[in-house]
Structures are given as structure tokens and as C-alpha cells.
């Protein structure tokens, strides 16, 4: 999955666990866990909400990184 993120780092800076972070954004703990693991790419709306909760821009949390296979092609 090419969309990477630093949500875990930003969440740690805020001193929140996944459940608390989820509550703040309006999603479940499992969703935060999925995003942090890179198993789920959030919608633009959710990405904006996350960025707002962390008080940073979306680009500071989410960034696009080509997979090696895709880059070689």
C-alpha cells in the first residue's frame, strides 16, 4: 500500500491511546489501528479530521510512497 503515515508518532506526541484518538475523531479504535498499520487508506474527509485533531497539515501525517515494484515498472 503506497500511502504511508506517521499517525502513531503524532498520537504519541498528544499522549493519546488509539481508543482516545478514535473518540476524538469519531471513529473506532480498530480504525485507528488499521490506519497506523497501513492496512487502510482513509478518505480525504477522515484524513483532514485526523490532521486537524493532531493540529498539523495532512501532508505531515500522510505521504505517498511508490512501491519498489511500481517504481521499477
Amino acid at each position: 500500500m503506497p500511502l504511508k503515515n506517521t499517525l502513531k508518532v503524532h498520537r504519541a506526541k498528544l499522549g493519546l491511546n488509539q481508543a482516545e484518538m478514535g473518540k476524538r475523531i469519531g471513529v473506532s479504535r480498530q480504525t485507528i489501528s488499521l490506519i497506523e498499520r497501513g492496512d487502510y487508506s482513509p478518505s480525504v474527509t477522515l484524513a483532514l479530521k485526523i490532521a486537524k485533531a493532531c493540529d498539523v497539515s495532512v501532508e505531515e501525517i500522510f505521504y505517498y510512497e511508490e512501491d519498489n515494484d511500481e517504481g521499477d515498472a
Binding site: G26, V27, S28, Q30, L34, I35, P42, L46
Partner: peptide, 12 residues
């Protein structure tokens, strides 16, 4: 009602 209350990742 449950489906409507789920967030986007849970729906997926």
C-alpha cells in the same frame, strides 16, 4: 442502524 453507525473502515 448498526451499518449506518459504523465508520468508513468498519463498513469496508
Amino acid at each position: 442502524e448498526l451499518l449506518e453507525s459504523l465508520d468508513e473502515a468498519e463498513k469496508l
